[in-house]
């Protein structure tokens, strides 16, 4: 009897309780916004979007000394764009997702990444729109989306690869083909404990091209080879959670270019999109 009466009273209290849910990121009970899954207006307003990157190469919101170095010209990727600046709040979000394993963040981050992807599409289209080209009203699209892999040990420990989750989410939202083009050949130490030089050195030879992954998607996909673009260019978008020095992405881009050239003879254009730019 008491359990029945308590559940009735709980039911009534739930009916009378103020509307609202618990915000995923700040934990307060308020009304959630519609645009972003699971967060409140205050948190949504505090997202440090990069609307206008200052650095055209790496998409940083502030001036970027790294891209002025002479070796930056030798990069294997065309450009990087990121959704947000990596501030304290974003660091906390990523930590909650990646290290604590709070996987409800995935939907939020994918949505944010998708937002940045659309902005990136418009930006590239406006750059490339030339009178000689016929495609005036069509937006730029990558032919393939891939992601930075993690080692199998890390995958088992964490249970998921955040970059893969982002890439697959983005692929679903925009109808893009996602391919496993890379495998991690060596288990590198956690990046967060290293200096810039150490990171770049450890990244070399950390990845290998997966011809198998490439051919699987080649067979199933309708976009290869790209027919409507400049002949011979294939555009590949690499997804990762965070761009710090660009070392990881550059290593991945190098490996992919070599691999694709070996398999098809084409030299692909590599673009990168990350959720955060530090």
């Amino acid at each position: 009897m008491s359990s029945l009466s308590s559940s009735i009273s709980r039911f009534i209290r739930e009916l009378l309780a103020p509307p609202g849910d618990v915000c995923l990121t700040c934990g307060s009970r308020t009304k959630l916004v519609r645009e972003w899954p699971g967060i409140c207006r205050r948190c949504a307003g505090a997202i440090p979007w990069i609307f206008r990157p200052r650095c055209a190469h790496c998409g940083r919101a502030i001036g970027c000394p790294d891209c002025l170095r002479p070796d930056a010209r030798l990069r294997s990727f065309v450009m990087n764009r990121s959704a947000v600046r990596y501030n304290e709040m974003m660091r906390e979000w990523l930590a909650q997702y990646k290290y604590r394993g709070h996987e409800r963040y995935a939907a939020l981050i994918v949505k944010m990444l998708s937002h940045a992807f659309v902005r990136m599409q418009h930006e590239i289209s406006s750059l490339q729109r030339q009178p000689s080209l016929s495609r005036t009203d069509q937006l730029w699209r990558p032919d393939l989306v891939t992601y930075v892999p993690v080692s199998s040990a890390r995958l088992a420990e964490r249970g998921f690869n955040q970059a893969q989750v982002f890439a697959e989410g983005l692929g679903r939202l925009h109808g893009l083909t996602v391919a496993d083009l890379l495998v991690r050949s060596r288990h590198t130490e956690k990046q967060s404990f290293k200096t810039r030089l150490e990171r770049i050195q450890s990244m070399r030879s950390a990845f290998e091209f997966s011809a198998r992954g490439f051919h699987i998607c080649e067979n199933s996909s309708r976009v290869i080879p790209p027919s409507d673009a400049v002949p011979g260019t294939m555009r590949i978008l690499i997804i990762d959670d965070i761009y710090t020095t660009g070392g990881t992405l550059n290593a991945c881009a190098t490996v992919i270019r070599q691999g694709v050239r070996r398999e098809t003879g084409m030299d692909p254009e590599i673009y990168s999109l990350t959720w955060a730019r530090s």
Binding site: R100, A156, E157
Partner: peptide, 27 residues
């Protein structure tokens, strides 16, 4: 309440507890 694919066990619906995440994920 959460259920996600899990690379550690291979299941596509491996549940985890969101309430005590601060002390490491219990799944």
């Amino acid at each position: 309440t959460g259920r996600t694919p899990c690379a550690a066990c291979g299941r596509a619906d491996c549940a985890y507890c969101e309430a005590c995440l601060a002390l490491g994920r219990s799944r």
